[in-house]
């Protein structure tokens, strides 16, 4: 443990804004990279299921 309190941890010795913004942006990008393909996959499966149903009815 290098920090003695939560406040000290968040302040990061006056470098808090830099450290936290860097980590925040990275987390955002990583999450975006996971969510986008998952959403695209769901959308694809739904549209494909609709197409199959149409073809079955026709």
């Amino acid at each position: 443990m290098t920090f003695h309190s939560i406040g000290e941890f968040l302040a990061m010795g006056h470098h808090g804004p830099y450290v936290w913004s860097a980590y925040g942006i990275t987390a955002l990008v990583l999450i975006l990279n996971i969510v986008m393909p998952r959403l695209a996959r769901r959308r694809y499966l739904q549209s494909e299921a609709r197409r199959l149903r149409r073809e079955m009815n026709a």
Partner: peptide, 17 residues
Amino acid sequence: GLVFAPQDYQQGNSFRI
């Protein structure tokens, strides 16, 4: 890296990036 690693003697905590 954020909690347990020691801070850098020159750059302080910004080194955690």
